[in-house]
Design a protein around this nucleic acid. Structure first.
Lengths: 150, 150
DNA sequence: ATACAATAGTTGTAGATACAATTAAATCCC
DNA sequence: GGGATTTAATTGTATCTACAACTATTGTAT
């Protein structure tokens, strides 16, 4: 097994806590890169894929931008521009909300839904990367990450 | 405690594994943002700080660029340009290696070392964020993350 | 009603990332 | 020695991120 020490070639950390911080950042980056490479064959970025999934969760009810933003993994990526990218690919639809002309109703299109289905079918392959952990260990990991963030 | 379900407002995931993937990405991004905000007061980015720490680990022996890159958390950030940023701030020194003129010897300066010391002293505050976990839990987390990456 | 504040989203932009192409030096090997 | 290969780093560039400033619309208080 590749310990974080050997991954970043550092023999010892100041504390177990600092080691955990580096470990989470490192593993997050590693997972992000795996995911990005996998999704590239479908011509979407990880955060674009994430937004499509979010919209599928609400479908057929559209969502406003702010609701999408607060569900995103990376709050910093600009939802306006991200959604515009998806719209140009025909994966989502944008409409000014009738009741409140400040907000826009965004929903996933049929094309977007079928892309999601295609990605879901293919994702078993790359998700097997995570199968190094048993289900009990995965649950424990989820528990610890939630507890960490307080 | 804020579960990943409530953080990304998703009631249920396809599997415990998918939930763990989202949880790691989300927690990584959360930790990165905390770290970036903390380090901004010292006018360095997280990856710049990371490179300074790497160089301190080797000090006073200089390191070549490739060795720095393979120890970095995010392998994608461009080490050439990152080191150049640090050099402009006077935190590192660059010298063409005499024996092999293809490579550059990079080392942390006194100014860099004292900045690191300053950051270390201040970092107790933000690292207390991680104190939501006990030492045993932190060790367990490190074990699981290492196992996950195989 | 009118001014003020709050909400929703857009735009601007400096700097960073991702990835490919390029330069330059050393090594190989006939 | 001289061409091919490998190694080390730099440069180019399109896209993305971080963050602030801005526009437009709605809500509120007097």
């Amino acid at each position: 097994m590749a310990s974080i020490e050997s991954e970043v070639k550092q023999e010892k950390f100041q504390s177990e806590f600092q080691k955990a911080a580096v470990n989470i950042l490192f593993t997050g980056s590693w997972l992000h890169n795996l995911n990005a490479t996998f999704l590239k064959t479908f011509d979407v970025t990880p955060e674009q894929f994430n937004v499509l999934r979010i919209l599928r969760g609400s479908h057929p009810k559209p969502m406003m931008l702010a609701d999408i933003t607060c569900r995103m993994i990376d709050k910093n990526s600009n939802a306006t521009r991200l959604v515009e990218k998806l719209r140009l690919k025909g994966l989502v639809k944008r409409e000014i909300c009738k009741n409140n002309r400040r907000q826009v109703d965004i929903s996933v299109t049929d094309k977007g839904l079928s892309l999601l289905a295609k990605i879901d079918r293919a994702s078993d392959t790359w998700q097997s990367t995570l199968k190094n952990l048993t289900k009990a260990e995965t649950q424990q990991m989820n528990f610890l990450l939630d507890k960490l963030r307080g």
